[in-house]
């Protein structure tokens, strides 16, 4: 049976990808951010996952407003990165595991989460940046990937409570997969930030630190927030905390915090990293 090793939550800001592309990791601005990542890479090297389930939100690369799915799951042999409008270098495709994807799709739909099924899915920075942070050298990345996408573009968004429950359904699906595979979850996005309006530049350190604490042992308290409360507390794009809650739902009720890191600012965002290991 498949085993869920644990999960890693990390911010996914496009500027991180740009910094990696120009080799700026040791610059004064970037070093305090990138210095948070070696412990997560060490953990991945020690546990050697076979599959990364990446829970992220598309920023207008694969989906447009003509049809925005609330929850979408990729079921492709590979996932292509593409230009998001800024002309950054396009990264090599990421291998998928369509049989495992269809298992998850079948399982969560049976569990009454009626997802959109994608046999083609272009993946943007929210998918690629966390993978680049975890495996800076692609030749050392021997995992297959399964993208799970959640709408943060067009309101109404799924509620934090619904995302947490979706995560629980994903967790049941993963645990029921008959192949002997080791799975790690990546949740990408957050923490507090707002790009638009006169409130642009809003960051809420107090709330972020509350999230990083509560998501470990009392995620239900965060899941009880409404979307509107989340916008107010975390900013219009801080709603990406939904990815973290989805991942937390997929982990077991008991988890052990292996590593955490928090840094303000990266671009307009408070950057958070949290590594939780499933307590067997």
């Amino acid at each position: 049976m498949a085993t869920i090793l644990g999960g890693i939550c990390t911010s996914h800001i496009p500027a991180i990808g740009a910094a990696i592309a120009r080799g700026a990791q040791d610059d004064d601005y970037w070093k305090p951010f990138f210095d948070g990542y070696p412990p997560a890479r060490d953990w991945l090297r020690s546990v050697q996952p076979d599959i990364a389930v990446v829970i992220y939100n598309d920023h207008g690369l694969n989906f447009f407003l003509d049809a925005i799915p609330t929850f979408a799951i990729g079921a492709a042999h590979q996932y292509h990165n593409a230009d998001e409008g800024w002309g950054l270098p396009t990264l090599d495709p990421y291998p998928g595991d369509p049989a495992f994807s269809w298992h998850i799709i079948n399982s969560v739909v049976e569990d009454e989460f009626d997802v959109t099924m994608c046999q083609e899915m272009r993946v943007d920075h929210a998918f690629t940046v966390p993978l680049s942070l975890m495996w800076p050298d692609r030749s050392e990345m021997h995992i297959k990937t399964i993208p799970i996408e959640i709408n943060t573009v067009q309101h109404p968004l799924p509620s934090p409570k619904r995302c947490y429950a979706f995560g629980q359904a994903i967790g049941r699906a993963l645990a029921a997969y008959p192949k002997d595979l080791k799975v790690v979850l990546l949740a990408t996005g957050g923490l507090s930030h707002q790009l638009d309006g006169k409130r642009a530049g809003f960051i809420n350190k107090e709330f972020d630190l509350r999230c990083m604490t509560e998501i470990v042992d009392s995620p239900e308290a965060l899941a009880a927030l409404s979307t509107h409360e989340l916008v107010e507390l975390a900013g219009t794009q801080g709603v990406e905390l939904m990815m973290w809650l989805t991942m937390r739902g997929a982990l077991g009720s008991q988890v052990r915090q292996v590593h955490s890191h928090y840094h303000i600012p990266v671009s307009n965002t408070a950057a958070g990293l949290l590594l939780l290991e499933n307590a067997a």
Binding site: V153, Q154, H155, P156, D196, G197, R199, H228
Partner: peptide, 15 residues
Amino acid sequence: TQDNHEIPGTTIFDG
């Protein structure tokens, strides 16, 4: 049904 009061400087991108 929820209290979706206005958040200053913020536009909710709704329908």
